[in-house]
Simulated assay, not measured.
Amino acid sequence: MEQFLAVAVAHFLALLIPGVDFFLIARTATASGRRNAGGICVGIACANGILIAAAFSGLSLISTPAVLRVIQAAGGAFLVWIGIAFFRAEVSVELTDQPRAGRIGWAKSLGLGLASGLLNPKNVLFYVSLAAALSDAGPVSLMLYGAWMVTIVLAWDLLVAVALGSRHALAKLSRVLPWLTKAAGGFLAVLGLGMILTLVTEPIR
């Protein structure tokens, strides 16, 4: 029980730190509604499940320096792409139930969420580190931990999507959303460039 509480607290605290997943959910919820943001959430949860299964099953490939460099490069490029898309987006809030032309569908949202989760180096490093710390746990315990974390990821992300996709939240965000979107886009693009520059400047091991 103590080990489970430690895992649950560490995972939830890591989940509270806003990152690309949070910005992607917030942007989709405010621009395309809660349903499409739900697709992002499901994709992110699936990606977390894949990474957890890989780390907890003892798949050491993802912890090798060469593979981590590839993941970091792909993640950096993904952040730059998402950041530019956010920065260039013309965002407006429409307090209407009518569908808006040009917004992404649920299937595409699912794909974006999956890519965001899989290409986020923070997720990879966190689960690899957690797996190392749980090396003495049995298979059943690891399965329970993994199921718990995927469930919490999905529940928390859906809560964010619902909160930011409500009419009340949209009304409050109507004035600041364009600036928030551009600020988030700039932040993500700079973060992605920083990841790529780190790979270029650090020696290959």
Rank of each mutant, 00 (worst) to 15 (best):
L142V: 07
K108W: 13
R69G: 15
L173S: 13
G58K: 05
V153S: 13
A107L: 15
C41G: 13
A37W: 04
V91D: 04
G165H: 05
L197T: 11
L134M: 09
I82T: 13
L110R: 01
F4L: 13
G75A: 08
V140E: 11
I104V: 12
G146K: 02
G186T: 09
G33I: 10
W156G: 02
C46Y: 11
A66N: 05
A184R: 01
A115I: 02
H168G: 06
P99I: 10
G111F: 01
M195F: 14
N36E: 13
L119I: 12
E202L: 12
L16R: 03
A37D: 08
N36Y: 02
K182T: 15
K172S: 13
F187T: 05
G38D: 03
L144T: 11
G186L: 11
A155W: 01
L142F: 06
G33K: 07
H168Y: 06
Y127T: 05
L154A: 14
T30R: 00
A74P: 01
K182F: 00
A107Q: 06
R69Y: 04
I82D: 11
A55S: 14
C41S: 15
T151M: 10
G39R: 01
V200S: 14
T198P: 00
P121K: 01
E202V: 04
T198M: 04
Q3C: 07
T96Y: 00
A14P: 03
A54G: 10
E90Y: 03
I50W: 04
M149P: 02
V9N: 07
L170M: 15
G39A: 12
F23I: 12
A137G: 01
I17Q: 09
L193R: 02
L188Q: 14
K172T: 06
L170W: 02
T198K: 10
S109E: 00
A171I: 00
L110T: 12
I204T: 12
L16H: 05
V128H: 02
A66T: 15
G19S: 05
A73Y: 07
V42C: 01
L110M: 08
L170V: 02
G138Q: 06
S57F: 09
V93A: 05
V9G: 11
G39H: 01
R167F: 14
I152G: 01
L130N: 05
A131E: 07
L15G: 11
N48C: 11
L130K: 02
G39T: 06
D157Q: 13
I104C: 05
A8M: 10
L15R: 02
F22W: 10
N123F: 06
L142Y: 04
L16N: 08
F126S: 02
R100Y: 03
A77K: 00
L144Q: 06
V150Y: 06
L197I: 15
G111K: 02
A85V: 04
E2T: 14
V7W: 07
I196W: 10
A137L: 04
L177R: 09
A85K: 14
P65L: 12
G76K: 03
V140Q: 09
A132Y: 04
S166R: 08
L177K: 11
Q98W: 07
L142Q: 09
I50P: 06
L59R: 01
L114Q: 03
G111D: 11
L125T: 14
A183S: 13
A115F: 07
V150K: 07
A66V: 13
F22V: 08
F22C: 04
V162I: 13
A115E: 08
K172W: 13
L95K: 03
